[in-house]
Each structure stands twice: as structure tokens, then as C-alpha cells.
Design a binder for these strands. Sequence first.
RNA 1: GGUGACGUAGCCAAGUGGCUAAGGCGGAGGUCUGCAAAACCUCUAUUCGGCGGUUCGAAUCCGCCCGUCACCUCCA
Length: 535
Amino acid sequence: MLRIYNTLSRKKEEFRPVAPPHVRFYNCGPTVYDYFHIGNARNFILADLIRRYLRYRGYAVKFVQNITDIDDKIIRRANEEGRSPADVAAQYTQAFFHHIAALGIEPADVIPRATDHIPQMIAFIQRLIENGMAYEAGGDVFFRVGRFEGYGKLSRKKIEDLREGERVEVDPRKENPLDFVLWKAAKPNEPKWDSPWGPGRPGWHIECSVMAMTHLGETIDIHSGGSDLVFPHHENEIAQSEAATGKPFARYWIHNAFLNIGGEKMSKSLGNFVTIDQVLGHYPPMVVRYFFLSAHYRKPMDYGPESLEESRRALAKLVSGIETIEKVLALTSPEGENNATPATADDATALEAVRSRFCEFMDDDFNTPRALSVLFDTMSQLHEKRKRFDHPKDGARVRAYARACVALLRELGAVLGLDLRAKGLGGADMPVEPLLRVLADTLSQMQTSGAQDLADFLAERIARFGFTYSAATGWQSERPLPANALDQLMDILIAVRNRARQEKKFAAADGIRAALGTLGIVLEDYRAGTLWRKE
RNA sequence: GGUGACGUAGCCAAGUGGCUAAGGCGGAGGUCUGCAAAACCUCUAUUCGGCGGUUCGAAUCCGCCCGUCACCUCCA
């Protein structure tokens, strides 16, 4: 049973959607006036995670994430840059899609834009005016907070406390300082839409209520966002929505904690932010994702290069661990064997235990740190079993179990949005030329050091590859380098090195490894064969 | 001023009343190896910011104190 911490009750509650298996899920999306920063990414990644996990648990999720494409900041930016607000919004909307795709975040099922919902918003505001919950004043329309009984129930604020803390200048047209704007009269040179109260544009809070209801109905199951939205944004959404419909607006409110930097909240207004663009310039997207998964979403975390670096190493353990297991599996399996079904009841039980532990932790308010610990434990078990892949009696069983385990690890990784298949850790493609040089050096080395049989062996392999080499003429060939030249050249080097090892010519063997080492290539010798990887 | 969150090993981070305080990074030693690498094994918090209290029993509940942060204003 999935339990979710609900900001409304400040408790973990059993998750019961209105109409299972359907889940209606709304997330406050970006205001598109700039690139989002790494702190904002926490919200988007959390929403993506919730969606993936609900889906994994068999729910049919309809996920809506809005784009706020009209607002003060967009207008300000447009004015500063001498272009239209629509132009600014279009640019950063596109950037948003680009960046979430880079982070492996799936686009929402519905991505409504505020400017496409103006008529619905006007109708909604009218409804509030009609039932006395809102009033017009000089072209603006305000929500009458005093008339809504539950005001403050989400943020646990008392109206009296709020008045004391008032720090903004109060608009004299407001009946109550807490009243918030639903419709803003247009100032000169601002984008505007016609309305019963004159030309203007919607207030921020009304957008989300209307878009959520338009696409998900009057009561939605989950509404999520950053914890700074609890007040006033989500409080106001609840007020206006429930005042209009008389029904609960959202059943579960999920809020993520912030990403701090230097101990302080990362924010646009403080100017201490790092854009997603900058981060992705330094770290692979999966590392960024792992970084967020490594802490619980309701706990503040601190951004820093050291943390990202640590995430990179931890994730590499999973990714390269799986890679190693698979390669050793390939080395030790008879031709054509690819059975990935546990062969014994015990194996099947062990495998299911992994999945159920993972789910148990995710069920507990999306406890990703514990979910990750399951992956690491499983990885360790696999490495242990690796030693028995070539066991004469038991090998086939162990290999089948290992294949099933690898598949499961990938499956669970995908639930977290981690792609454990891709190298994805920044290991850039390598040019072939340096490798050719190593090959050439190795050949001359062997010739001059009198290891003629090794030199002949190497030359023969090079010839079979379709090339010849001599110090005088360099590389010669009838044909261009094939696409998999890198792998083929590595095979040749590994073959000659292993021959050297067999003949106990360790100096030659170690020379090859050292030369490859300068290219960042590491060799690993297993009983069944030699693997290489690029660091 | 009001409200809320957090403080667990060298670092990151789970755990919120009861088996030996997850997992990761880093570090030390060992096994395997011709040497390596990878991996595995062992060790790295007798104790959870401090002080009291409740309880048979507390990192976990309560009180006070110290420290850090956030919300009350646009903000993920």
C-alpha cells in the first residue's frame, strides 16, 4: 500500500485515488521567462518519479503540467530585451522541453498553456463573482479571502498571524489585505485580453486552478510543487477552487524541499543559482538525477560539485557493475545461451524479494535513498555470484539467475528514471588514431626486443584486419577503417597481450597495458577472458 | 513578531519507540591476480547537536537550550 505524505494533513496517508486505477496528477510547471535552475529541477524530477512509480504500481496516470506563459516576469524580460512577451515565452518554453528531455523526464500527458485558457479563466472568475467570493475594483478582480472558511488550511496559517506579518504595501482597493488578484487590469503596453471587467490578464493563482480543472476535473488526486508554493500559491488555489465548486480541490498535496547552495535556498531572486544548462555542461544527466534520488524529496539538500562528483561515482558503480556482469556472462556462457528465468524456486523467491523490498521502500512516501540501497545490495550479490558463472555444475543456474537480476535492476532503475543501460556517464567516444599508434609502438617494441614470435603474431593479426604497418611506410591498407575498428583493434591488442602472458613475457604484456593506460583504457583479466573499458 | 523544517560516522544519507543504527563516497587491512584492475571479506557511529524528562526500553515521544535554514512578498 502506497503511503504519501500529505501537506494538507502533515501526515503520511494511504494513497486512495478518487477513481482507481485512474490517477489525476497536476504539477505546477515552469514560468517561462528564463532557463530553469538546478533547484527547479528537483520539482520536475520528483513529479516524473511519482508518475513513473504510480504507473509501475499499475495506476493509469493522467499527468498535467502547465506552462505559465504570461506573467510579470515575462513581460519585464520582454521589455528589457525589446521583444514581445510571446516571443520570450516561446523561447523558454522550447528550452524547457529541451532540458527536461536531457534529464530523462517524460513530457506530461497534457501541457496546457495559460494563454490558451483565458476564456475558461474568465468564466471561472465570473462564477466566483456570482457567488460572492470575488469582487471587481477598478478593472481588477480580487478574491474575497474572508469569505472562504478554510483559508490557511494547507499552510497552517492563521489569518491574524498573516496580517501582523504584512510586509507589502496594501492595495487600498482591497477589502482585506489578504485578498488576492484573480484578474489584473492591463497597464499600457502590456499584453491584454478582453473581459467583462475590461482588458487585462489573469492572475497567477487562477491559472493553475483553471488548467487543472479543465484537464483533470474538479477534484484531482495529486497536486505537487515546490514547498515555497504552499503559501500563498497553493493556499489560494484551494480557496478559489473550492469556493467555486464546493468540492475538495486536491486530495494529496506533495511538496519537495529546496536545493540549497552554500546553506541557502537557491533562488532566482537571491541570484545564487546555477542553471540546468551549466550543470549539464559538467555532469551527465543521469548523475543529476541520481543526485536528487540520493536524498528524500522532503529533505533540503545542498548543491555542490563534490556532491555531484560523489553521485557520479556511486552511479558508476551500478552502471559499470551491470556492464561487467554482462560481459563476464558473455565470456562464460556457451554459444547462444541467454536464459533469463530463475531455474529454482529459491532463485525465483530471491528475485521477487528484491522487487518487493524496492516497492516497500518506494511505497513509503517515495523513499528513494532506501530504494537505491536495494539496487546496491543486489549489485553486490551479483558480483558474488559472478565467481560461479563458470562453475561446471552450477554455472547455468547461476547465469540464468544473474541475467534475470540484471533485467530486474534495469527495470527498477527505469522506475527511478535511471537508465542503467547507457554508458551515459560521460565516457566520450574515442578516436582510433591513438590506438593505432599503440599498436605500431607495440610492434616495433617487440621487434627490437627480440620477441620475434610475438611480433609475427601481431603482424599476422594486423594483416587479417586488413592493414600492414612498417616504420618506414606507416599504416597501409586497401580499405578504409571499419566502423567497429576500435573494438577490433582492442581485440588484437588483447590477443597479443594474452599470448605474451601465456609465454610469461610479462614485460611485453605490461607494456601494452601501460600504453593503453595512457589512453585511459583499463584492462581487466578474468579467468574466462580479458575485458577493457574506457575510464 | 508569527509559523514550520532540520541537526545521525571524515563526507553524503536512511532510520521516527524494541532484533547487531540501511546504503553510498572516502580511508585502512585482507582475499583473488604473474603484476594489476574489478570484485569480495573485515574494520572505519557503544551512539544519533546539548541538557533534562516520560517509558521496562528513545536517535525516535515531551520540555528547555544551542545551531542552521525556510515560509509569512515573486520564487520549485
